[in-house]
Design a protein around this nucleic acid. Sequence first.
DNA 1: GTATATGCAAACAATTTGCACGCCT
DNA 2: AGGCGTGCAAATTGTTTGCATATAC
Lengths: 132, 132
Amino acid sequence: MEGNVKRRNTQQRKVILDILRSTDIHPTADWIYERAREYIPNISLGTVYRNLKILRDEGLILELNDGKQSRFDGRIDEHFHFKCTSCNSIYDIDTPEIVSVDESFLIKEGYQVDSYDVIFSGICPRCSGSQN
Amino acid sequence: MEGNVKRRNTQQRKVILDILRSTDIHPTADWIYERAREYIPNISLGTVYRNLKILRDEGLILELNDGKQSRFDGRIDEHFHFKCTSCNSIYDIDTPEIVSVDESFLIKEGYQVDSYDVIFSGICPRCSGSQN
DNA sequence: GTATATGCAAACAATTTGCACGCCT
DNA sequence: AGGCGTGCAAATTGTTTGCATATAC
């Protein structure tokens, strides 16, 4: 039903993945599109969306979401996210030891756990510094 | 800037909150709209959206998301979520003890943590039973 | 050579908004 | 009575898709 599709290795997909791996701002499709145009001027937004979906399905990137739109993350190693409710930025939290999860209960209940994400919400240091 | 707006207590908002509190399926705005029409036949979808936003801002409900659209949760006590990647349902996980979080590191770094959500992804018991 | 991926633009789906009127307080 | 909330419909926004062509293999 899925799985072994013969994928071509296109310039477009390569550029998109490179862009995503070179930033930690968890960009939107549109931001990626604008960056990609610097390398492939006539790349289309549709292609960006199509490739992001492919990369996500292949497990090479993560799709997050900011409530309004999708954001993408080139990091797939274990880390968490902090969503600032003031500036809407998403920060990486790189200290796996602050969260510990025991999935055994879920497995016992019949859930097949593929992954989990922990999303903290609140005010980031930058925003709580500049009282706005 | 926000905060003390003088809110009226409308039938519409009351019905929406009641509906949300009486289900655990984390419905979409549209589902809530259809239910609400049973009580207020000419309620509009715009009103449903407006009130969901208000209730969320007041902290009375949670806004989740299934990748494509928003889903809403009338429960605000501590619990986690399991998102089935097969049927797209969101399940409540009511066992707080399976996750433990030490926020002190974040606080030390200057983050103000208001809440956090843990979202498991995978296949739910129902879907893994019926191999589809 | 062939089929998958692309660019383009139109279509779509979810959500938001402007406006005149209605109804809570 | 006054102003926030509503219904309605149109507008907006983010994303997807159909099709002819280009290109990776």
